[in-house]
């Protein structure tokens, strides 16, 4: 029980869940290990209709990171509910459905359909995808638009709503406060940082979409700093993510103020990474003399106060 965590809508047997977009709908990973060991699964973003996404190349490697510009490719909310959720219902893990769209109406439609499925325990409102022309990040970089969309999706959803914040803003705490005031039940953070790589043999960007979202270990310090700031600015729980690949990375996010942690890009490097982190957690807590993992939540800023 030292790993068990209760969050709005979610009863997590441990704080580890694969991040949206890095795990598909679980089918490929289910061939490698039992998905029921996971605290939860943040499934790939759903839009109202099927989307093909961007042209290829869609990925480019960077120092300790990668850029991606998939472009929200998915089969559409109806196909996801019908085929993908039916598959995921077989597993004893909490499903968090990532909701995306180009217009408020599309977000509302997807949120309504997704939250109606008994398999879905919470929604993750995606206002931070940097790789689509309409919607996505434009909703996530303006606090007024983010708040309005949060209100609309909250009203449409029968399940708790976690808002996924974009790091591509001047003040992350302003965004967090705006969505909290609009009724968000929790925050997931951070989405990718907008970046670019250029192929010097052609002089052109490597990604067909030109820009993409940077993820991987390279962004972890940015994510930790932002979780640390937001945890002190709001009273709703945070699911932290950004460059997590080891058990110590997980603890770093908890110390910064997160209540659970998502693992993204590391699933590509090592498809067994979530399983390995979950198995390693109890031993690491023993070594550090921690009883329940959340005993150290937010200790990074609390200790600053006690040291003064």
């Amino acid at each position: 029980m030292r790993l068990h965590i209760e969050l709005p809508g979610l009863s997590l047997k441990n704080p580890i869940m694969p991040a949206s977009g890095c795990f598909g709908f679980g089918e490929e990973f289910a061939k490698l290990y039992d998905l029921s060991i996971l605290g939860g699964i943040m499934i790939k973003a759903a839009t109202g209709e099927a989307r093909f996404g961007n042209e290829t190349p869609r990925v480019a490697e960077t120092a300790q990171g990668m850029l991606n510009a998939i472009g929200l490719q998915n089969p559409g909310v109806d196909a996801i509910v019908e085929a993908k959720l039916a598959f995921l219902a077989k597993f004893d893990t909490e499903i968090i459905a990532n909701v995306a769209g180009s217009t408020p109406e599309e977000y509302i439609h997807v949120a309504r359909e997704m939250s109606a499925d008994p398999c879905v325990k919470a929604l993750e409102l995606n206002i931070s995808c940097p790789n689509v022309k309409c919607g996505g990040m434009q909703f996530g970089t303006d606090p007024l638009m983010a708040a309005e969309l949060t209100r609309l999706v909250k009203a449409a959803s029968t399940k708790p709503v976690y808002v996924k914040l974009s790091p591509n803003v001047t003040s992350i705490t302003e965004m967090a406060r705006a969505v909290e005031a609009a009724g968000a039940d929790g925050i997931t953070m951070i989405n990718t940082l907008v970046g670019m790589r250029i192929d010097i043999t052609t002089g052109q960007p490597i990604l067909a979409n030109r820009i993409g979202g940077l993820s991987g270990p390279a962004i972890k310090p940015v994510a930790i700093r932002m979780v640390y700031e937001v945890a002190q600015a709001v009273n709703i729980p945070i699911i932290g993510m950004g460059g997590v690949r080891t058990v110590d990375d997980v603890l770093e996010f908890i110390y910064a103020g997160a209540s659970a942690v998502a693992v993204g890009t590391a699933n590509f490097e090592n498809p067994y990474v979530c399983q390995e982190i979950i198995e390693a957690l109890p031993g690491r807590l023993d070594e550090l003399g921690i009883d329940h993992i959340l005993d150290v939540r937010g200790k990074a800023y609390e200790q600053v106060v006690s040291r003064a």
Binding site: G21, C22, F23, G24, E27, E28, F29, L32, F52, G53, T56, P57, R58, V59, A60, M66, N68, I70, Q73, N267, F268, P271
Partner: peptide
């Protein structure tokens, strides 16, 4: 051949029309 992410079909990086 295409630039791949996961290699197992989950990330949609290496799609072809």
């Amino acid at each position: 051949e295409n630039r791949m992410g996961c290699g197992i079909g989950a990330c949609f990086a290496c799609v072809c029309k």
